[in-house]
Structure formats: C-alpha cells, structure tokens
C-alpha cells in the first residue's frame, strides 16, 4: 500500500501557474498508472503459467468430455464426433458396467480417504502433543518422524512393495514366521488385502505431514496458558481439551482439507504399488480414470469422469469451508 501513497502531490499544489500544475498532474497520473501496473506485472508470470498448465487444460478437458474421443480418433482429434452428454450419462448410469465400476471405485476412494486422513491426523496429533515439551532426544525423534515425508514417493512406495511381497517380504515374515498370526502367507498386493496394504502405505507417508503442521501450530501456543491452567489445578486431560486442541483449530481446519484433497487425488501411491491395474478392492478413482483413458483409449469418457470428480471435490471443499468458518465465527 505504501508505494501508492508516496508524496507526489505536494509540489503541484503550490505551483503558481495553472498550466504548469496541469502538466505536473498529468505526469503524476502517468506515474500513478505505472505504479498501479506494478502488482499486475509481478503476478503476470504466475498467472501465465497457471493459465497454461492448469486453467486452459481444464477447460479443454471439459470440452473433450463432450466428444466421442475413442481410439478411432487418436490420429485426428478434431474429427471426433460430438457426443453431447453421452459420456456423462455412461459415467453416472450405475446400472451399466462403466457407471457401476465408477461408483464402486468412488466408494473405495471415499472409504480409503476417510480412514487414511483420520489415522494420519490421529497419529500426527498424538506425536505432536507427546513431543510438545522438551526431553532428551526430542530433536532426533522429530527428524526421524519426518523421514517418510521427505522420501520421494516412488522410492518409499517401491520399498513398501518389497515389504509386502508374499514370499520374500518383511510383513509376512513378521506376521507368519515370528508372530504366527496367520497360517497361510496372505497376499497383500492382489485381492482383498490390498485395501489394507494401500491404507498402511498411505498413512505411513502422510502422518508425518500432519505431525509437521501440528508441531508448528503448537509452537504458537503461549506457555503461560498452561501455567495458568496448572495453577487452577487443571490436569493433563483438561489442558488437552481446554487449551491444546482449541488452539490447534485453525491449523486443523487447513490440515484436514489439504490431507483430504491430496489423499483423494492420490495417484502415485497406488500406481507405484500395484502398477497400471489396481486390484478391485483398492481401485482408487485416479487410477480408475487413468485406466479408462489410457488403457482403453477412451479419452472422452475419462475426461467426463475427471470433470465429475472435480465437481465433487468443489462441492465438498465449499461445504467444508462454509461449515468450518461459520463454526469459527460463533
């Protein structure tokens, strides 16, 4: 703001001749106009890049969703016939094969996301609260906890896929050979167990981020609050409910939303863990759409599914922000 109110007017008002004053004012206006352009110039690169990579492709994707863009038109996109809402109709027809599979994938993704975000938040909060007050080795422990977040996704997930191998993996070695919890070696990367495997990997990767944000949030809680509460005789549980959790509310509002969006849209984890064909019980929506587009070469249908996914996320995010902000005001 400061830059717009620099003292440029003083000289002009004291000028004796009106003509000169007019000229000054003109020059001043030109300078003000240039000043007004400054923020836009600074935003221009960011805006141009977002337009090129996000917004224009998104609009283009919406257009593609209205075309019958199948393998027959791969060579010549512009010849693809207009399909109207045909792709959408196929996507939401839950009795048809395509719509039914999409609905199943959506249900799997929703369950996966709720569980993963819930567990990650719980572990992150627990660890952040337990490391709030200094003790020996706290710094090392924090560093250790952050390691999964720092690892590149694919390196971490490749390691997990090794751990989850049926015959040579660490997980079955512990469960079957050491703890004797199962008689037969279970499969983790195919069949029904793959949902649990995917969930474990996802929580392992995302709880450190919750821990990081909540630790940062806890540093903003004034220590006097706890001292005052202790004087009043409030115990650990009372302080947790009365001070810690309420003070973390603003952090949690953002954290839960970000985790939700990341997890719901997660492509990397299932793609590296299972390859291009995910098991049905772990058929996350991003993988499902990827398959519908690239494996079966039906890009129009894939685009329609993506648009539906985006609409869903918009509605959820809007509703979430509405509800959480209103509660905050009250």
């Amino acid at each position: 703001m400061a830059t717009l109110t620099t003292p440029a007017g003083g000289a002009a008002t004291t000028d004796r001749s009106g003509r000169s004053a007019g000229r000054h004012a003109g020059r001043r206006r030109a300078r003000l106009d240039r000043r007004r352009l400054v923020p836009y110039l600074m935003l221009l690169p960011a805006l141009a890049l977002e337009l090129l990579v996000h917004l224009v492709p998104m609009l283009y994707g919406c257009w593609m969703s209205l075309l019958r863009l199948t393998q027959f038109y791969i060579r010549n996109w512009s010849a693809a016939p207009f399909a109207g809402l045909g792709n959408y109709r196929a996507s939401i027809d839950v009795n048809g094969a395509i719509g039914g599979d999409l609905l199943h994938s959506f249900g799997v993704t929703l369950a996966f996301t709720v569980l993963s975000v819930g567990l990650s938040w719980l572990l992150g909060t627990t660890a952040a609260v337990l490391t709030q007050h200094p003790f020996r080795g706290r710094g090392a422990l924090r560093t250790l906890f952050l390691t999964p977040y720092a690892l590149p996704v694919y390196a971490a997930v490749i390691t997990w896929s090794f751990l989850l191998q049926r015959d040579t993996g660490m997980v079955n070695h512990v469960l079957v050979d050491q703890l004797h919890l199962a008689g037969d070696r279970p499969f983790w990367l195919i069949g029904g167990n793959s949902f649990g495997a995917l969930l474990a990997v996802s929580v392992w990767r995302s709880w450190p981020f919750a821990f990081l944000c909540l630790t940062a949030g806890l540093q903003n809680v004034p220590g006097e609050l706890y001292e005052a509460a202790a004087v009043d005789g409030a115990g650990f549980g009372r302080q947790l409910r009365g001070i810690t959790l309420p003070m973390l509310r603003p952090v949690n509002q953002v954290l839960v939303l970000v985790l939700f969006l990341w997890t719901f849209n997660d492509f990397n984890t299932p793609y590296v863990l299972f390859g291009k064909a995910a098991p049905r019980s772990a058929d996350l929506i991003s993988i499902h759409i990827y398959q519908s587009s690239f494996v079966t070469w039906n890009f129009g249908l894939g685009s329609a599914m993506s648009v539906l996914l985006l609409l869903f996320l918009l509605v959820v995010t809007g509703a979430y922000l509405l509800v959480t902000s209103r509660r905050g005001d009250a």
Binding site: G61, G302, T317
Partner: peptide, 11 residues
C-alpha cells in the same frame, strides 16, 4: 485441488 488426471491429457 484439481485432480492431476483431469488436465494430464489436455496438457
């Protein structure tokens, strides 16, 4: 919040 898959192909 855009799903990457939405603009992968158009891009």
């Amino acid at each position: 919040m855009f799903p990457g898959i939405l603009f992968l192909l158009p891009l």
